[in-house]
């Protein structure tokens, strides 16, 4: 006949285990992603105010962004290693002056849309950059956590640990990050077998945000078409302006919510149809959060320790009861 001690556990500890498991099972899970909370900033881009800096050689926001980020991309090695086996590289080092799309050297550009408005033709200027999503798939999917969303709301790529696999661009609904081959950590590890450069994009001037300053593009805008502020305030302001102009908002619901809200007197369906789209030129259409599909299973993962714990205790209790009946002891 076995005693409880021979089973290696006392009745008291056994009951404590059951109580612990039961308590763990009742702990509620948060209902929503935390990012975008009280500490987060958001930006507002008012398309009724932006004129693309007509008359200037380059829009002020683009010029400020380029000046702020000049020298961020190191000089690529020459020749750039050909990644085995496909041999495809992406090299913008000889096209650094391109400002008509997103590139590793250009994190903001102004899209143009020719639309009908008020009975006449109008050109709408749309500054485009990373939307800084509330729960960014690019950060979820990065295997090295080189891409991270900060409490400020900024989604930032750490160029020192990015291998340039471009997963972030693939899962981004707008394909924002841009790759420069021939730079980065992969050159020091397996340059032809793993990695293919570094991904670059807008970081919302995170270094300025932590100092209490605004992003370079917003500070430079001569028409105050862009604003930054606490997310709740910016959202309220966007809704107020949209209501006042009988207009539309983009970025509030897209990809599960973002930290960039566009306000426009023209619908985004119309704008989306009118803009030139393609690599480095993101759309303005619907953007469902791709990672949404993984959420139910992720919740099951978070619950799985409790499942195992409770099942283990239940099975042990069952086995001990059976053992007690068969052997005439507890």
């Amino acid at each position: 006949m076995k005693t409880e001690r021979e089973h290696g556990i006392s009745r008291r500890a056994f009951l404590t285990g059951i109580a612990t498991a039961a308590a763990a099972g009742t702990v509620g899970l948060p209902g929503k992603a935390r990012a975008g909370g009280e500490g987060a900033f958001a930006t507002l881009i008012d398309l009724s105010l932006c004129d693309g800096c007509e008359g200037r050689e380059m829009p002020a926001c683009v010029a400020a962004c380029r000046e702020k980020n000049a020298g961020v991309v190191p000089e690529p090695v020459d020749p750039i290693p050909k990644p085995f086996p496909r041999g495809q590289i992406e090299d913008f080092s000889r096209k650094q002056g391109v400002t008509s799309r997103l590139t590793p050297y250009n994190y903001l550009f102004v899209q143009k849309a020719e639309v009908e408005l008020g009975g006449g033709k109008k050109t709408v200027s749309i500054p485009r950059r990373c939307m800084h999503c509330d729960n960014p798939a690019c950060a979820t999917i990065c295997p090295f956590s080189a891409n991270h969303k900060f409490e400020s709301g900024a989604v930032v790529i750490d160029q020192d640990i990015c291998f340039g696999g471009a997963k972030c661009r693939e899962v981004c609904p707008w394909a924002i990050p841009q790759r420069q081959s021939g730079v980065g950590i992969y050159l020091h590890i397996l340059p032809t077998l793993a990695g293919n450069g570094v991904m670059f994009k807008c970081d919302l001037c995170q270094d300025l945000l932590v100092k209490g300053e605004g992003p370079a593009c917003i500070t430079a805008c001569p028409r105050k078409a862009m604003l930054i502020g606490p997310k709740a305030d910016i959202l309220a302001e966007a809704e107020r302006r949209a209501a006042a102009m009988n207009g539309f908002i983009y970025g509030k619901e897209e990809n599960g919510g973002t930290s960039t809200l566009y306000v426009s007197p023209v619908s985004f369906e119309v704008l989306n149809a009118a803009i030139e789209k393609g690599p480095g030129r993101p759309h303005l259409g619907k953007a469902q959060r791709k990672m949404e599909k993984t959420d139910p299973m992720a919740r099951a993962v978070v619950a799985s320790p409790v499942i195992g714990l409770v099942a283990g205790i239940a099975a042990a209790a069952g086995a001990r009861m059976k053992s007690g009946k068969e052997g005439g002891h507890e």
Binding site: I9, G17, M297, V301, P305, L309, G312, I313, A316
Partner: peptide, 18 residues
């Protein structure tokens, strides 16, 4: 889910069974 639940089950079950 299977991996974590089975691992935790293993630890807890055999702990209580001694």
């Amino acid at each position: 889910v299977v991996f974590i639940a089975a691992s935790l089950f293993h630890v807890v079950y055999h702990w209580f069974m001694g």
